[in-house]
Amino acid sequence: MYQEAAVLFQIAGIGIIVAMIHTILKQMGKEEYAQFASLIGFIIVLIFVVNSISDFFQQIKSVFLFQG
């Protein structure tokens, strides 16, 4: 249970930091870099989420299809 909560906090932290980087870059007139930073952050978070979801499906499979 602790593990899942840690992932949540990690994703939240990444979100906050990426938002701050985005704001700073945008303020300094580097729109394109700001967009790029957000995109990178999004992709990284997406990778985390995909991992978690794959775990989740594995669990379902092991419950209903009697597989490891």
């Binding site: 990690q10 930091i17 990426v18 700073i24 303020q27």
Partner: peptide, 23 residues
């Protein structure tokens, strides 16, 4: 004037970002 402050905060934020990734 334009990049002085940005570079400072960006350095700190990148560090925080990498730390969070590796945590």
């Amino acid at each position: 004037q334009r990049y002085g402050r940005m570079v400072k905060s960006l350095g700190f934020l990148t560090g925080l970002f990498i730390v969070l990734l590796l945590l």
